[in-house]
Every structure is written in C-alpha cells, then in structure tokens.
Amino acid sequence: MNLSTLFNAMPGAIAQGLIWGIMAIGVYITYRVLDYADLTVDGTMATGGAVCIMLMMNGVNVWIALLCSILAGMLAGLATGIFHTAMGIPPILAGILTQLSLYSINLTIMQGKANQAVSVTKFNLIVSSRYVRELSLNNPIFISLIFTAVLIAVLYWFFGREMGAALRATGANEAMSRAQGINTNFCKILGLMLSNGTVALASALFSHYQGFVDVNMGRGAIVIGLAAVIISQVIFGRFFRNFALKLAGVSLGAVIYYIVIQIVLWLGLDTNLLKLLSALIVAVFLAIPFWKSKLNSMRKGGVPRA
C-alpha cells in the first residue's frame, strides 16, 4: 500500500464529497426538517444530470440547462408530494413510486441510452474532474464550495421567513401546525420540491464532474445522504447549533464519507462491496439513538419498548 496513491486520490474524494454534500443538504431538508424519509432522491439524483446533459447536447446554454435540472427535480418532489397528500400513500412508498417512475423518465430523457457523455473539451462544463488537482478557478473543489455556500445562504434565508418557519413547524408538530392555521399538506409538498430541486442540482453538477450521466447514478443516494446527515450529527452535533452551520456540517459529513470510502478502497476493499458497507454503517448509526434509549430505560428499571 502506497500512501501517495491515497494522497493523490484525496482531491477527487473531496470534490465528490462536496457535490454529494449538496445532495445531502437536500436529504436534510426532508429527513430532518420535514421528518419525512423521501426515497425520491435515488431517481432525482439521475434526473438532474440527464436533463442538464441532454439539454447541453442540444445546444442549450449551460446555466439555463442547470436551471431546468432544478425545475425537473422540483417536479419529481411535487409528484411524491401529491402521491402522499392527495392520494394518502405513506411517505416511503410515495417516494418509491416516484423513484421507479423516474427510471423510465430518465431513460426517456436520455433517449433510451443508459448513459450519455459530454466531453470537457467540447462543452462548457461547470465542474470537471479534469481540473481537480489544478490550482485555478476551474478547480471543482473551489466551484463546489461556492455552490454550497450560496445554497446554504438561500436556505438559511428561506427557513427564517414565515413560509420556512411554517415548514419547520410542520416537521416538528403537525397537529399544532394545523391548529395554528398552517396548511401542512402544502408545506410537505413545498419541502419535497425544495429538497428534490437541491438534489437535482447536485445531480447536474456530478454529471458535469464525471463527464457523463448514468441512469443508475442515483442508486443508493438516500443512503449516502443519510450517512452525511448522521456523520455530521455525531461529529458536529454538539457545536453546530445554528441552522446554517448545521447545513455546512452536512456538507462536511459528505466529504468525510467520501474520504473514508477512499481510505477503505485504498486498504483493498472490493468495490463491489461498497454499497453493502455504506448500508451497514448507516444502519448502525441509525440504531444508536434506539440503543441509547433502550439502555437508559433498562437502567431506570423500566421495560424497554420495541
């Protein structure tokens, strides 16, 4: 094992972590703020890239293409929101239904091909892995940082507004929100749209970064997003109380996740086992609060509730 190989891989891991961190911020909006486990993101994480790359291949300006990606993601969130609020489908199932639909939709957008590539020499890509070790304004780490900062600023502003506060209240206590005249169904739909719009932005950026969009690139995205949210909670939870700092923590969580993955691969883990490893790590971290409460109630002599 050669340390310099690991060292060389670090800039790439950080850049990927930052882009997936944007996705994780989207997951944070639903999972933490809205208290809604939204599986739509596995589909949206490919939709954003598909829309952006295909529009660019058809000569559309890169920024307009990016905007369309975000709108497409918001539409996916709207679909899940309607499945849940207007049709009464439970959150997880509503997300799975949209996710499955998106597989067909993504293939259709990509004109029936499982992947579509764009070359950095021919296209004006916002971020590209080609420049990841270059000390310039083209460096994807630098550009991703700017995107993350702007996103956090916008979300921080929004959640301090009446509408954002209503959204947070909906996630915190639905009965109370309705008693205070908040349209909780509207808030849920809005939250899902915000979240999936953010994920689609990450998707578009990631397809730029790797130079292609793949119909499967979102598989397991929710798990990576949850991992980032949980890592940030475990490491920064005590210090990051402010909402903006919490979002920044989630982004850092994703970077840490990618660095750890890089180290594990460097240690010789079979890449095929990567998703298994991610899932198990997230499962253990999700279990920690449950185990803690179980331990506490046993200490007090009470009977733990399953």
Binding site: E162, A169, S177, G181
Partner: peptide
C-alpha cells in the same frame, strides 16, 4: 407546541394564525 423550535418562534407561528405564510420575516 413545537418542541424543536424556540419559545419565540412558537409564539411567532401563533401570531400569524389566519394569515397567509409569505416570505416576510418569520
């Protein structure tokens, strides 16, 4: 009440009962 929100935030939510929730400050 919303447990994860501050006392003043809870009051601000209640003060807006019956009004549309806009992009004005919370």
């Amino acid at each position: 009440t919303a447990a994860s929100m501050q006392i003043e935030e809870n009051l601000a939510l209640a003060a807006r009962r019956g009004q549309p929730r806009t992009l004005r400050p919370g």
